[in-house]
Design a protein around this nucleic acid. Sequence first.
DNA 1: TTGACATGAAACTATAAGGTTTCATATTAA
DNA 2: TTAATATGAAACCTTATAGTTTCATGTCAA
Lengths: 118, 118
Amino acid sequence: MKDPHSAFRALADPTRRAILVQLLNGPHTIGEIAEGFAMTRPAVKKHLAVLEEGELIRVIPEGRKRLNQIAPAGLAPVIGWLATFDAFWDARLSTLKSVIEQEETHHDRPRKDRTRRD
Amino acid sequence: MKDPHSAFRALADPTRRAILVQLLNGPHTIGEIAEGFAMTRPAVKKHLAVLEEGELIRVIPEGRKRLNQIAPAGLAPVIGWLATFDAFWDARLSTLKSVIEQEETHHDRPRKDRTRRD
DNA sequence: TTGACATGAAACTATAAGGTTTCATATTAA
DNA sequence: TTAATATGAAACCTTATAGTTTCATGTCAA
């Protein structure tokens, strides 16, 4: 498993976590992202650089724009590290299961087949 | 759900993550913990303070010692925040399910006694 | 009671991190 | 081609963070 450090570091800042949440709505340019925060674009740019370093976002050039897209697979090393705490998993097992089952319920609406193919 | 910031911040440092892993073997004094790291006890003390602030450890006074004990429930806000990324859960669902089911299987029989002392 | 032990706290230092302003570069549209 | 747009990069400032050394405090054991 990839070293989770860069991802943990990226997640440590509230602005960066908020950016990730915002990107759940789809890719956004740095300009769009910066509008939502009380800081300048260069400051947001640095946060995006840290998120990219942690492989939590990808940057897709599109003309003169750069679309910043969330890369949720980058969270895998984080989850992987957390999973080493099986005392934690013991304690949270039922919560997790319900979260997942709720997810699966949402999946009942038509969408690309995913978990069906195991 | 509790704000995950103090926990995310605590997890951002590799020394603190290593301390948490070490504490999976049971409670340890600061002296014992400091032996494992190339830094002084006051430095380790500061890390422990951050972990305590994030509610990832508890400190149990015992005579002139202080036992630092992992508090895995403190990871719940972290998991809770990660759970908002249902794109992530989509991608990781089957993996997670297998992890959990494996955990459940293990529950039925005795296993390596680690954090089992209550 | 006294010395050794285990820890805590204060003051200080160096570097990293988050922010700014300013300027440069690439692309689109008129 | 040129002006506006979208972004990137450099230099700088301030504060937080991670570490140190030094000293103080509380507890155990002889």
